[in-house]
């Protein structure tokens, strides 16, 4: 951008940068705080941002190692943190896949097919989504309790139940993907159909590859949503072995003893898969995948 700019422009740029940096620091602060707490010896929530001494005791516990504290006591990891992490990742991956499958196909129907009640269905989806899941916790518990009587692997304290509950929250994803499909001209699929594709082949070979960036975004959002979700998982999962990291880390914070340091280490761990997935998915989230097919 080598546009000619006014003199006062430099001042504006500086002010804008100062504002942005201040804002960035504000948003980064809680994260830095958590990192600091996890590296601090002992379990204290308060203290300076940069710890005086660095100790990896919380990280050792989180990663499943024992450590010997100052008084020579051997402290064993209280909770299977890595196992919880694995539970979380497993649930999040399956949830994201199921969500993607359901929301792309529904979005296709809403974007391309003609059927009665389409407009109504779209609005209803949003309305239902507006009802906070927390308010329906009791209902969710009751439903899965009942389901468990017939299908044990979908009952209370199963990962299946959590995934099924999460897969219900796809309304916003349907809207997002439908919005993207709407921007792709119908002529693209018509061309495929003239070329001999079935509706499904046109969807699979033409529409989906063009929508790849948005599919990545939805997958990522669903994944993050599942990793950080607490209320539903907390009432559906009970045994320590079954917990997700989000639910499990809460165990560090029991009434008499807040293990802030251990909690912080676990919290950072739970952010790890999200970061990893984001780095991988970024490759496909580039824009402009669909450009050049039509005129212009």
């Amino acid at each position: 951008m080598a546009m000619v700019q006014d003199k006062s422009h430099l001042g504006k740029i500086l002010a804008a940068h100062a504002g942005l940096i201040a804002f960035l620091l504000l948003t980064m602060f809680p994260f830095l705080m958590i990192v600091s707490i996890s590296l601090r010896p002992g379990n204290f929530a308060s203290g300076s941002l940069i710890p005086d001494t660095i100790s990896f005791e919380h990280w050792k516990l989180a990663l499943g190692f024992s450590y010997t504290d100052a008084s020579g006591r051997l402290i064993a990891p209280p909770f299977p943190v890595l196992h919880w992490l694995w539970n979380s990742v497993k649930i999040a991956l399956i949830t994201a896949s199921v969500v993607l499958l359901l929301s792309t196909t529904s979005a296709y129907a809403f974007a391309r097919l003609k059927f009665r009640g389409k407009e109504l269905g779209l609005s209803a989806l949003l309305l239902v989504q507006m009802f906070p899941a927390v308010l329906s916790l009791i209902a969710i518990y009751a439903i899965f309790d009942e389901i468990g009587n017939y299908v044990p692997w979908l009952g209370i304290d199963s990962h299946g139940s959590v995934i099924l509950a999460y897969a219900g929250g796809i309304a916003l994803h349907i809207w997002t993907i439908k919005g993207y499909f709407d921007t792709i001209p119908a002529e693209m699929e018509e061309a495929a159909i003239v070329d001999g594709a079935s509706h499904f082949q046109a969807f699979w070979h033409v529409l989906l590859p063009m929508a790849l960036p948005i599919l990545c975004v939805v997958f990522l959002l669903a994944f993050i949503g599942a990793i950080i979700e607490y209320p539903v998982a907390s009432i559906l999962l009970h045994q320590e072995q079954n917990l997700t990291l989000a639910v499990g880390s809460k165990l560090y914070l029991y009434e008499q003893n807040y293990l802030w340091g251990d909690f912080a280490a676990a919290a950072i761990l739970s952010g790890l898969p999200i970061t990893l997935l984001f780095v991988v998915a970024q490759r496909w989230m580039v824009n402009g995948l669909s450009s050049g097919g039509v005129k212009g």
Partner: peptide, 20 residues
């Protein structure tokens, strides 16, 4: 019959090439 079975082929105004 669907388009292919009719033995037709069509060129669209917007070209509609597959961009990927």
């Amino acid at each position: 019959l669907p388009p292919v079975k009719r033995g037709i082929s069509m060129v669209f105004q917007s070209y509609a090439l597959y961009p990927h």
